[in-house]
């Protein structure tokens, strides 16, 4: 049985489009459906575009949290 409480973290500080989304997508491919991924981003346009693109791919955005001037956490539930 998969562990639904497990949260995988992906640090994408320093990355810009499309690498932010490519790396998020590749990481999600490693996870089971229903598992949670937390992505750390420091590029503002990616904070809008990565969640929008993920939603388009059927994943669920659990939350976007600003952690600093240029730092965000995006929580994703894999479809």
């Amino acid at each position: 049985m998969q562990d639904m409480s497990r949260i995988t973290e992906l640090d994408l500080r320093g990355e810009v489009c499309p690498y932010t989304f490519v790396k998020t997508k590749l990481k999600l491919e490693e996870l089971e459906s229903g598992e949670e991924l937390k992505v750390i981003l420091d590029h503002a346009p990616a904070v809008e575009n990565v969640p929008r693109s993920l939603k388009n791919e059927g994943h669920k955005i659990l939350g976007i949290e600003q952690k600093g001037d240029n730092l965000w956490n995006v929580r994703i539930r894999k479809a």
């Binding site: 810009v16 489009c17 989304f21 590029h43 346009p45 809008e48 575009n49 990565v50």
Partner: peptide, 27 residues
Amino acid sequence: VCALNVEQRKMSRVPGILFGSQYDNAC
């Protein structure tokens, strides 16, 4: 538009135009 290219050129957003990404081009 590619938001990264817009940001690199210090441009402001334009209403009605999606501030998008290379994923949008792929779509």
